[in-house]
């Protein structure tokens, strides 16, 4: 097990290295001079020179990169061009919002997908199966921002009631905080719910055809323990992988959802810094999001190597 974990850890190093490389150099191919972009076209030569000096833009790119990465390794993401605030500080301030939003979305989508996927597979080709599949497909097809817009607009058009679109910190008013997160989380989780339902259904159908399920039936087990104890557990591994990969959709989706529901999270921070072309902030947020994504997937890999010995030894 330890060797497996070490092997997986070693494997993510080139990926993380690639992420920093791509992010850094992508930011530097931006058309126009960085200092000029920040200070505007009427900035004086002296002001531009001071800005470049201050942010180390005079050095060759590889040196700038090495400096940025060595700071990064020490968890220092630099300062915003606009406010001089610490990028790490800004991100840390906003983690709770995005974390709560993503966690709620994940819980919501799994709470829907599990029963829907299992029932859909067990009652294959019945009315309830078709219903589940149509909903899953709709969750996948309707874009996130459309679902969110519908959630805000439909109650207003039909009942004249507008859902609360503001952020309340958990420490100020726990109840208001949780209720305000429900709609954004459902909107964000809808597509994951769709994907996971489809995945659970197809995996379960696959597993239910295996010999050991026939054996379980032959020894007289009733359907419920067969599905719960024998089939579901074996169907879970590919499902977990998909949930891990789909986390990227959730992380990207927070940009849209936090924008629509006015939540001060990391996604909104990214959107704001893109709007202001605040490159250190964009770089920091992008790298942070990628690292979280890679790290969660690493944890999932390790988790199922621990559950399933076949993976450990392959």
């Amino acid at each position: 097990m330890t060797t497996y974990i070490i092997r997986r850890l070693v494997m993510i190093i080139p990926v993380l290295f690639g992420v920093t490389l791509i992010t850094f150099f992508a930011m530097r191919v931006a058309p126009g001079d960085l200092a000029q972009v920040q200070l505007g076209e009427y900035a004086t030569e002296e002001a531009l020179a001071v800005f470049r000096e201050e942010h180390g833009l005079e050095d060759p790119l590889p040196i700038q990169y090495v400096r940025w990465v060595s700071d990064l390794v020490q968890l220092d993401l630099g300062e915003s061009y606009r406010t001089n605030a610490s990028v790490r500080g800004e991100i840390f301030d906003r983690i709770p919002v995005t974390f709560q939003l993503t966690a709620f979305a994940l819980v919501f989508s799994l709470a829907i997908a599990f029963p829907a996927g299992v029932i859909s597979a067990v009652r294959q080709d019945t009315f309830i199966d078709y219903l589940a599949r149509i909903f899953a497909m709709a969750g996948l097809a309707i874009p996130l921002f459309v679902i969110a817009s519908l959630m805000i607009t439909l109650p207003a058009i039909w009942f004249g009631w507008t859902p609360p679109i503001r952020y309340t910190a958990f420490t100020d008013d726990p109840l208001a905080n949780v209720t305000h997160f429900i709609l954004p989380a459902i909107a964000l989780g809808a597509s994951l719910a769709g994907t996971t339902t489809r995945m659970i259904r197809s995996q379960l159908l696959e597993v239910m055809r295996q010999d050991y399920i026939r054996t379980a039936r032959a020894k007289g087990l009733s359907e419920r323990p067969i599905v719960a104890a024998h089939a579901l557990r074996n169907a879970m591994i590919p499902v977990l992988t998909v949930v891990g990969l789909q986390l990227g959709v959730l992380i990207g989706g927070t940009i849209i959802i936090e924008q629509i529901f006015s939540l001060p999270g990391i996604g909104r921070l990214l959107w704001e810094s893109v709007d202001l072309r605040d490159y250190p902030m964009i770089q920091g947020v992008v790298v942070f999001m990628c690292f979280v994504y890679v790290f969660v997937n690493l944890c999932i890999d390790i988790a199922y190597a621990w559950i399933d010995p076949r993976i450990r030894y392959s």
Partner: peptide
């Protein structure tokens, strides 16, 4: 393949947003 792995580590909308922000 290593470069492709690195690109896959970006959540899709984050990558698209970053590219558009850089290129205009």
């Amino acid at each position: 393949q290593r470069i492709m792995d690195s690109i896959l580590a970006f959540p899709w909308l984050v990558l698209a947003l970053a590219i558009v922000s850089v290129l205009g």
